[in-house]
Design a protein around this nucleic acid. Structure first.
Lengths: 254, 254
DNA sequence: AAATCTAGCTTTGTCGGACAAGCCGATAAG
DNA sequence: CTTATCGGCTTGTCCGACAAAGCTAGATTT
């Protein structure tokens, strides 16, 4: 249709962006493997032929993207982006978009059920041991909402891990980071809330052990419905996740 | 337990990081609203009392995180992070973690089914019109794998949008960005593949129109199972998503 | 000879200053 | 009233410099 273009599209990107892109490309396509050094700033200056300030701006971009990090001696190296850090950025985005708890709940229900299904199918002995360890510790702090909330979040992370599906692990993380901090308020506000939570976890773990998918899904749903009922005693599901949430997201960031 | 600490923990973070954190905090907790200007670099230099190079490094961090952007005249302003951009980073991470197509497929199945359920429940007339428009265009290019693949990806984005659940929209995006680029290969490799795809979309849209959740889920599952069968003719599901994929992720980035 | 220490080199984080290019608003010209 | 020009401001980039912290290798001690 269109005539053969005489000129190639002119590439107008700031130099720091080009530096970042160049390094990124090498990492993504595998020419630089995670853990391998990138070189010193001085070397990059020499290779790219730009000023050190420019290189440093490019480096900051990649660092924030999780593609490179500085080791103990502050030298640059490629690395595998941690889900957790990226998920924090997403959680932040969700806050700014003022998503509602209903959206959060609905999506978490979907993803947690998927997690438990995967866990029932594929959990290893080690996964089960981790979950059992978590459950045991939970039983110890059943009267302590803050401690229990933390262990609840961990239980669900371990469940996602047991599903052996890393895409699922990643997908659930942003919602979970916003969802689970509420657990503390809810467990504290409902009598027998802590006991019900631990009981549900127990049934879920049991279902995973017996490879009983139906039971696993059933108890996971009940567990989340409990959360929902508890939440609705405090606030409307249609309330949006607010800025005050930020602190939780921040505490979890490091 | 611990004695009251005499000193507060000393905060040893590089200055550029502190600059980024300070601005980030103002945005996240809402004191600076999306669209509002941050100020010029010179002003930030004055406010923070650090060098412009330092400020600029901090700005790069936030820019990459999607929290601030530069308007037409390159002045800084806060903004709402675009899902799309963040999702690209996650897709990148998934590639580096060498996730398998099986993981991708399983998670996408979960999320697309959830999308269609939401869409059946809550799609507006406008959503339906958009989907119908997409379907019409799809019918026109049924013999063109590349064009059809693009419209397929769009169809699923529209479906997620129709679910009115932004958390779900966000959660499905990273997997989708890696999942749907394969459609082109698959549609091209299977006779009648294009026709089956358009047929499935038609049934899904019809189900959304009739608010028939069961049919919507059924046809979504079939649609994805078609993808799976097509993929397995070409390669094993246990193959990991490779670096060559990068190009697609890149093309979609801007 | 092995372990330790110390001095020097390297690298990063930060600073100050500089300049070209692009955008903006104001002013001058038609 | 529109157009053209002119400064001023801002950004992107560059240069050079320096303190602090890490690393290296030679010098010193046991």
């Amino acid at each position: 249709m269109a005539a053969t273009p005489l000129f190639r599209r002119i590439d107008v990107a700031p130099a720091y962006q080009k530096v970042a892109d160049a390094i990124e490309r090498e990492i993504i396509n595998g020419r630089i493997k995670p853990g391998e050094p990138i070189g010193t700033e001085q070397q990059l200056v020499a290779q790219f032929g730009v000023n050190r300030s420019t290189v440093r701006e490019g480096i900051r971009v990649l660092e924030e993207g999780g593609l490179i990090r500085r080791d103990s001696s502050r030298r640059l190296q490629a690395c595998l982006p941690r889900y957790n850090k990226l998920a924090t950025r997403l959680s932040r985005a969700l806050i700014l978009h003022e998503v509602t708890f209903r959206e959060l709940f609905e999506t978490s229900m979907t993803l947690e059920v998927a997690s438990v299904e995967g866990a029932v199918e594929r959990a290893t002995d080690e996964n089960i041991a981790e979950l059992a360890g978590n459950l045991e510790r939970s039983a110890d702090v059943v009267g302590n909402p803050a401690g229990l909330a933390e262990l609840d979040a961990e239980f669900h992370v371990l469940m996602a891990k047991a599903s052996q599906n890393r895409v699922l692990q990643l997908a659930r993380e942003p919602a979970a980071q916003l969802f689970f901090p509420t657990t503390e308020m809810i467990v504290g506000g409902v009598p027998e809330g802590g006991a019900r939570l631990v009981e549900a976890h127990g049934h879920i773990l049991d279902a995973i052990r017996r490879r009983d998918k139906e039971a696993g899904v059933l108890w996971t749903r009940r567990h989340l419905q409990d959360w929902r009922r508890g939440f609705e005693k405090i606030a409307s599901l249609d309330r949006s996740v607010e800025h005050t949430y930020m602190e939780h997201a921040y505490a979890a960031r490091q």
